[in-house]
């Protein structure tokens, strides 16, 4: 039933995918001590940038679009808390805490990601 090409194809795809995952994991753990900034984007519009280390009280941000997302920000973490979209992948992603973490609600075109900035860089806009 299976032919030679099938096995080679699967092997190549697996090697490529696993290498990419390993590479990304290593890149992430090497990022060290940086200030973490959560960026909330809808399409190519940046709605909000939040310094996660400086969040005192938890805050809820509502993003409207084709659907409605409620994003919850707490000290050093951020997540999609609720969404009216069909698949709710954004909510299932859970808390984002590390640089490089991201959660996306494609139906609403909303993305939350954490970017790291070196402490000595200034000029971060809110």
């Amino acid at each position: 039933m299976l032919k030679k090409g099938d096995i080679i194809l699967v092997a190549l795809l697996l090697v490529a995918a696993v290498t990419a995952i390993a590479g990304m994991t290593m890149f992430r753990s090497n990022s060290g001590d940086t200030e973490k900034i959560a960026v909330i984007k809808q399409g190519n519009v940046i709605l909000k940038e939040i310094r996660l280390n400086e969040v005192g009280k938890s805050e809820r941000i509502t993003v409207e679009g084709n659907y409605k997302n409620i994003i919850l920000v707490e000290n050093r973490k951020i997540r999609f808390e609720e969404s009216t979209c069909p698949d709710k992948v954004c909510v299932k992603t859970g808390w984002l805490t590390n640089e490089g973490d991201m959660a996306v609600c494609l139906p609403n075109q909303v993305m939350v990601k954490i970017e790291g900035v070196n402490m000595d860089v200034d000029g971060v806009t809110y």
């Binding site: 699967v10 795809l13 697996l14 490529a16 995918a17 696993v18 990419a20 995952i21 990304m24 984007k41 399409g43 190519n44 490089g100 991201m102 996306v104 494609l106 075109q109 993305m111 990601k113």
Partner: peptide, 23 residues
């Protein structure tokens, strides 16, 4: 398409997992 819609290259980070899921 997600990269085009979101205008963000970071979405490509999902690709390896999607490739494995596709297999």
């Amino acid at each position: 398409m997600a990269v085009i819609v979101m205008k963000d290259i970071a979405v490509l980070g999902y690709l390896p997992v999607l490739v494995i899921a596709g297999i």
